[in-house]
């Protein structure tokens, strides 16, 4: 197996996959802990479904989908937040509606366009092994921006996640902090599509966070553990999928699931 790994590391596409995958995994882990604790975990799933429509639009107008998805998914995320904040809709209902519309619009566009040359399957379930040089650069830059902002607003994000009322009374602009969180989530979801696809990207956000929350005894540890679990699952998933010729996105999710089960039993024995 080590020979296989050494051999795999010599390929540029594996190197690109590892770099992009690890950076995106770190973003997912950092945001995942806040999202899970704020009961926003489903938002990642909803935004991923919405991104399906934006990918279809990108393919229709012959623009690299990520450039269409980034602004549109961010706008959709802000819309979800607005709807829930104004209590116009229940939060999960708003996500459900927009998710369904996202997939429906995506399917309609694909149908009207008479099918696309590009394999839509790879956007549904991801194909990190086909990540391009441009996508790697974009992923690394955006990931660094996302992680930098999480670091900069860390204390505000913690305060808003732990006790929003107290955060507001302490002078934190809670509305702004929630917007930052949701925008960063939207960006991360779009980046994660290449790694595991629209159908599985929310698992990249939720799994490492949930596993970390089982064992962490303080907040910083929760974020660090989520980061470790996330990166380990992406690296494992890439190598396993290369060695056994399996779909990379699904393999990464399964690696996350294995970590979750291990942590669950470790916690159970304590």
């Amino acid at each position: 197996m080590f020979t296989d790994i050494r051999e795999a590391l010599q390929f540029a596409f594996i190197q690109r996959a590892l770099i992009a995958g690890c950076f995106v995994a770190l973003c997912c882990a950092f945001l995942g802990v806040f999202l899970v604790l704020k009961r926003f975990a489903l938002i990642g799933d909803g935004l991923a479904h919405i991104s399906f429509a934006t990918i279809a639009i990108g393919l229709l107008v012959h623009v690299t989908p990520i450039f269409i998805s980034l602004p549109l998914v961010v706008l959709a995320a802000l819309l979800v937040l607005r709807l829930t904040e104004k209590s116009l809709l229940y939060g999960d209902a708003a996500i459900g509606l927009l998710s369904a519309m996202g997939v429906a619009i995506g399917v309609l566009i694909a149908s009207v366009a008479g099918g696309f040359n590009v394999d839509l399957f790879s956007y549904l379930f991801g194909n990190i092994l086909s990540v391009s040089q441009t996508e790697v650069i974009l992923s690394v830059i955006l990931s660094l921006v996302i992680m930098g902002l999480v670091r900069f607003f860390y204390h505000d994000l913690f305060a808003v996640t732990f006790d929003q009322d107290h955060a507001q009374v302490s002078g934190i602009r809670t509305g702004l902090v929630n917007r930052i969180l949701i925008v960063l989530t939207a960006l991360t979801v779009v980046l994660g599509i290449k790694v595991v696809g629209t159908m599985l990207v929310s698992s990249l956000i939720v799994f490492p966070a949930v596993s970390a929350l089982f064992v962490a005894t303080n907040f910083r540890a929760a974020i660090l553990l989520a980061a470790v679990f996330s990166v380990v699952s992406v690296i494992t998933g890439i190598f396993v999928s290369y060695i056994w010729n399996l779909p990379s996105g699904a393999t990464i999710v399964c690696a996350n699931f294995v970590i979750f089960i291990v942590v669950f039993f470790i916690r159970g024995r304590k």
């Binding site: 802990v33 704020k38 302490s170």
Partner: peptide
């Protein structure tokens, strides 16, 4: 929203009041 599993220790909670 405080639940048993929230992974914040006492130091972190009190510090939040200081630097918020």
């Amino acid at each position: 929203h405080l639940d048993q599993r929230f992974p914040a220790n006492v130091d972190e909670v009190v510090a939040a009041g200081l630097i918020a």
